[in-house]
Amino acid sequence: MFGFLSDIGISRKLNEDYVGAYEDELKKIYVVADGMGGHNAGEIASKIAVDSTLDYIKNLKEFENLENILCKAIKTANIDIYNKAKVNSSMAGMGTTITACLIVKDRLVIANVGDSSCFIVKRNNITKITKDHSLVQQLVDSGSITEEEAVNHPNKNIITRALGTNEEVKVDLFTMSTEGIFKIILCSDGLTNVVNRHEIYDIIIKNNNDDACTKLVELSKLKGSKDNISVIIFEGECENDRDYTK
């Protein structure tokens, strides 16, 4: 069972995040999107991103190339947002991040555009799979600032890649086996801006998915997150009796 929660947070007047999931006997798809704050219709862009991605995948019956399928789904969502903005001036420039995970049997593929994140939790560790498409990440990569300086950088929320702002979009893809993976977390930066990965690990390892989502959102607000906060947590390897708490 997956857990999810999207919260407006303590500072915003509108929740521009949107989350969604679809599961059946053949596949599982989970998506989180964070509409671009300060842009027109960010909440519309994030909803289109999630709904379009799910709609593309949920009716498919064959999954020979998971990377190609998820990439096409997100590129379709990109065009849907872009075209919607073209015909409605009040939505001009709208955009959103997206991070998604598609699981078929024991294979999973993660895709991202922007700075929403995916983490995987194993028995003794948590690993961030995605890499932010942001100005601050570019500064870190170039050696201009350190990881520690990036945490409180004033331009932390400036992203360099988004869905819907251009007719074409580049999608990062990460493929792996579910073997040995306890949980997978997708989240918006309203969580990761204030809650570190060790805190995320500690909460996830000690709680069921629904309770972990609630506790992560509560901790984000307690630590003063100024953004909307969204989290989806779901299973990796399907071993119901595996004990990861020891």
Rank of each mutant, 00 (worst) to 15 (best):
Ile110Gln: 08
Leu163Val: 15
Thr99Trp: 01
Gly93Asp: 12
Val19Tyr: 01
Thr245Lys: 15
Ser117Pro: 05
His39Ala: 13
Ile74Asn: 05
Leu14Phe: 06
Gly224Val: 04
Thr165Gly: 00
Leu5Val: 11
Cys101Leu: 12
Met36Ala: 00
Ser177Arg: 09
Asp243Gly: 09
Val194Glu: 12
Glu148Met: 06
Ile103Ser: 01
Ser177Thr: 15
Lys13Ala: 11
Glu23Thr: 08
Ser46Cys: 05
Met36Val: 11
Arg242Val: 13
Asn152His: 02
Thr146Gln: 01
Asn40Ala: 14
Lys156Ser: 06
Thr178Leu: 05
Gly164Ile: 01
Ser116Thr: 13
Asn88Pro: 11
Asp189Ile: 03
Asn59Thr: 13
Cys187Lys: 04
Asp51His: 03
Val217Tyr: 01
Gly180Val: 07
Ala111Thr: 08
Gly95Phe: 14
Ser220Cys: 03
Cys118His: 03
Phe119Gly: 00
Val195Leu: 11
Glu149Tyr: 00
Gly143Pro: 02
Cys187Ile: 09
Ile81Asn: 10
Ile184Leu: 12
Gly224Tyr: 02
Thr127Tyr: 15
Ser90Val: 13
Thr245Asp: 12
Glu147Phe: 00
Leu60Gln: 10
Ser220Val: 04
Asn228Asp: 03
Ser188Glu: 04
Asp211Trp: 00
Asp172Thr: 04
Ile181Glu: 12
Val231His: 10
Glu235Trp: 08
Asn152Thr: 00
Leu54Thr: 07
Ile81Leu: 10
Thr146Leu: 01
Ile200Asp: 14
Asp172Ile: 02
Asp34Asn: 09
Glu43Tyr: 03
Lys246His: 15
Asp141His: 07
Tyr82Val: 04
Ile232Thr: 03
Val151Ala: 08
Leu70Pro: 04
Asn157Phe: 04
Ala77Asp: 11
Gly114His: 14
Glu167Tyr: 06
Asn155Met: 08
Ser46Thr: 06
Cys187Ala: 15
Asn83Pro: 04
Arg123Phe: 06
Gly3Met: 14
Lys58Val: 10
Asn152Phe: 04
Ser225Ile: 01
Asn209Ile: 04
Ile200Leu: 12
Lys72Pro: 00
Leu70Cys: 05
His153Asp: 09
Gly95Gln: 14
Asn207Cys: 12
Tyr30Ile: 01
Glu218Cys: 03
Cys213Lys: 05
Val121Phe: 13
Asn166Ile: 00
Ser90Ile: 13
Asp24Val: 06
Ala21Trp: 03
Phe234Trp: 09
Thr127Trp: 12
Leu191Gly: 10
Ile204Gln: 07
Asp241Val: 12
Lys131Thr: 15
Asn88Cys: 13
Gly143Asp: 01
Val171Ala: 07
Lys122Leu: 10
Val104Gly: 10
Ile10Thr: 14
Tyr18Asn: 14
Asp243Ile: 15
Lys223Cys: 01
Tyr30Thr: 00
Thr192Gly: 09
Val109Thr: 14
Glu218Tyr: 06
Cys213Arg: 02
Asn65Trp: 11
Lys122Glu: 15
Ser89Cys: 10
Ile29Arg: 05
Asn155Tyr: 04
Cys213Ile: 08
Gly180Asp: 07
Leu26Thr: 12
Leu186Tyr: 00
Leu173Trp: 01
Gly38Arg: 06
Asn40Ser: 13
His153Pro: 02
Asn65Thr: 07
Gly38Ser: 07
Asp115Leu: 09
Thr192Pro: 07
Asn193Phe: 06
Val87Met: 11
Val217Asn: 01
Cys238Ile: 14
Leu216Pro: 03
Gln137Tyr: 07
Ser188Pro: 02
Asp132Trp: 08
Gly224Ser: 04
Val121Gly: 09
Ala92Glu: 15
